[in-house]
Amino acid sequence: MSTTPSARAEPRVHLLTGGGSGIGAALARRLLERGDEVWLLARHAGRARELAAAFPGARTLVGDLGEPGRLSWALGHQAPPDRLDTLLHIAGVVELGTVGDLTPKIWQETLAANLVGPAELTRLMLPQLRLSRGHVVFANSGAGLAARGEWAAYGASKHGLKALADALREEERDNGVRVTTVYPGRTATPMQLKVHQQEGRSYDAARLMDPESVATTVLTAIDLPRDAEITDVRVRPGPA
């Protein structure tokens, strides 16, 4: 029996963070084009309206990953999907700096948006994911495997995200929930432009991966037949 999305009785349902640009935007567009139901998490109502206009057919939820303690309250005053096939954690923030210069505020903001927020959103969506025997995807980074100088805060948040994914995979296996971590290399996104600026380097998108390439990797993972699971995958820019 075919396991392609077109053979399904109904479209799959996806909740996506970071859908406004880069990898998240590429994923949202691809999922909508194939007829799936896409929900986009927005930081505030104004951003939700922008996303709804940019992605016709998508639905929105308002909740700020940077304020994990308020996510439960925020989603409790809305109507999230009652079933969920995939939860796609694509959003992230970055602020480079040496350990000697990073302030508690930067540490707290980075860990909230990149680690605690995704953990809390996952917790809140687990009932729907268990119901659908769904899939959680975390967009990590090479910094989640090895952090260089000036990448302490971001790298720590991404190392923590790897631990979150690994623990979640073990905990939810018996519930049929799959968990994948994708580690993209440098990709032509607004975040990468900011990184280049912080590093004092010139930005050349042509030398980086296209977000569509990372989106294709994610789609491969979530479209894999149920008898298999991609747990971790590294994606790097190809040879020039």
Results as ranks from 00 to 15, higher is better:
Leu224Gln: 12
Leu115Ile: 04
His159Leu: 11
Ala146Phe: 08
Ala42Arg: 02
Pro5Ile: 12
Leu87Ala: 07
Ala139Pro: 09
Pro104Leu: 11
Ala26Gln: 08
Val116Lys: 01
Leu115Tyr: 01
Met1Phe: 09
Arg173Gly: 13
Ala205Asn: 10
Val136Gly: 05
Trp73Asn: 15
Arg178Met: 05
Arg47Ser: 13
Ala206Ile: 10
Pro104Trp: 01
Pro56Gly: 11
Glu10Trp: 01
Arg234Asp: 14
Val94Tyr: 06
Thr103Glu: 15
Arg207Val: 13
Gly92Met: 05
Gln128Ser: 15
Pro56Lys: 10
Gly63Tyr: 01
Ala9Trp: 01
Glu50Thr: 13
Pro68His: 04
Arg186Cys: 08
Gly100Ala: 12
Asp227Thr: 09
Ala146Gln: 14
Glu50Phe: 00
Gly155Asp: 07
Arg173Ala: 15
Gly117Asp: 04
Leu27His: 01
Gly97Lys: 02
Arg186Ala: 15
Ser72Phe: 02
Ala48Cys: 06
Ala9Cys: 12
Glu120Pro: 11
Asp174Ser: 14
Gly149Leu: 14
Ala112Cys: 11
Glu10Thr: 13
Ala113Pro: 08
Glu67Cys: 11
Leu96Asn: 10
Glu172Lys: 01
Glu199Trp: 06
Ser213Trp: 00
Gln128Asp: 08
Leu224Val: 12
Glu171Val: 07
Gly69Asn: 06
Ala215Ile: 03
Ser2Phe: 08
Gln78Val: 05
Pro225Lys: 09
Val179Pro: 07
Val195Pro: 00
Pro56Trp: 03
Leu224Lys: 10
Ala28Phe: 00
Arg178Asp: 04
Ala53His: 01
Lys158Asn: 13
Ser21Asp: 12
Val38Cys: 11
Pro211Ser: 08
Thr217His: 01
Glu120Gly: 04
Ala188Gln: 05
Gly160Leu: 08
Gly66Leu: 04
Ala53Glu: 11
Val99His: 07
Leu61Val: 08
Tyr183Pro: 13
Ile90Met: 11
His77Val: 09
Ser202His: 13
Arg178Thr: 09
Glu50Leu: 06
Trp39Gly: 11
Leu31Val: 05
Leu65Trp: 00
Glu109Thr: 11
Ala25Glu: 02
Ala205Trp: 06
Gly160Ala: 08
Gly20Asn: 02
Val182Glu: 03
Arg130Asn: 06
Gly176Arg: 03
His135Thr: 12
Leu219Val: 10
Asp223Ser: 13
Val233Asp: 07
Arg173Pro: 03
Leu15Val: 10
Ser6Trp: 14
Val218Ala: 02
Asp36Cys: 10
Val179Tyr: 00
Thr4Pro: 02
Glu199Ser: 12
Arg30Val: 04
Phe138Val: 07
Ala240Pro: 13
Ala42Ile: 02
Asp82Ile: 08
Ile23Leu: 07
Arg29Val: 01
Glu67Gln: 12
Ala153His: 04
Met209Arg: 02
Asp210Ala: 15
His159Ser: 10
Leu193Ala: 14
Val177Met: 10
Pro127Gly: 09
Asp64Met: 04
